[in-house]
Amino acid sequence: MLQLLYFARLRERFERDAERVALPAGVADVAGLTAWLRERGDPWVTELAPGRPVRVAVNQDMADAATPVADGDEVAFFPPVTGG
């Protein structure tokens, strides 16, 4: 299973702050997981479209498209941060 988390604007657009999903077949990295989420259609395909300002963290460390994703991981999707 994967624990998926959503924050700020993405939490609102996806109407959820977390969900548990089985690791999709063939998904091995952040790029693959993002593409799998886009298959859900709108708003996923819009918010997670290539070029949109979305950041991803895997197990609470900032990740990029090539970061591996494995069973048991916590993967968070959020907009660029605006603290301080």
């Binding site: 924050f7 700020a8 604007r9 963290a57 959020f78 907009p79 941060v81 605006t82 603290g83 301080g84």
Partner: peptide
């Protein structure tokens, strides 16, 4: 901190809430 720590601000303006 401003570019790497996961905080997000939502403001209340006369036009409503905005991230």
């Amino acid at each position: 901190l401003k570019t790497r720590a996961p905080f997000w601000k939502q403001e209340a303006t006369p036009d409503g809430l905005r991230w």
